[in-house]
């Protein structure tokens, strides 16, 4: 395997990982916990927004994050010719 190319693959993997994990932390820990009282001032239908993130929204986002990672990595694996 070409060392430089491999290092580049790994770096790309790490940066998409960090990006997706920051969204993960944002919706759960920031919106759902740290800012919950501020966001609860905003209402979407019957839901106070902070409460919705804590009990519903963050879970939907988690599912989407994993599938985004799957799709991105499947493409990256092919591009760098490391797929199975």
């Amino acid at each position: 395997m070409d060392k430089g190319k491999m290092a580049k693959y790994w770096k790309k993997n790490l940066s998409v990982m960090v990006f997706l994990l920051s969204i993960w932390a944002l919706v759960s820990y920031v919106f759902g916990i740290l800012l919950v009282n501020q966001l609860n001032q905003i209402k979407i239908g019957g839901f106070p927004l902070g409460f919705w993130f804590a009990q519903q929204g963050s879970i939907y986002v988690f599912v989407v994050l994993i599938f985004v990672y799957c799709i991105y990595m499947a493409k990256l694996d092919k591009k760098f010719d490391v797929h199975e």
Partner: peptide, 25 residues
């Protein structure tokens, strides 16, 4: 959750968010 209200989110997020860590890390 029905007795805890908002605080029930510790289980809802706590028992799902780990899968993001599993899938990515």
């Amino acid at each position: 959750i029905s007795f805890m209200g908002y605080t029930g989110c510790i289980y809802l997020m706590g028992w799902t968010g780990g899968y993001v860590l599993l899938a990515l890390l």
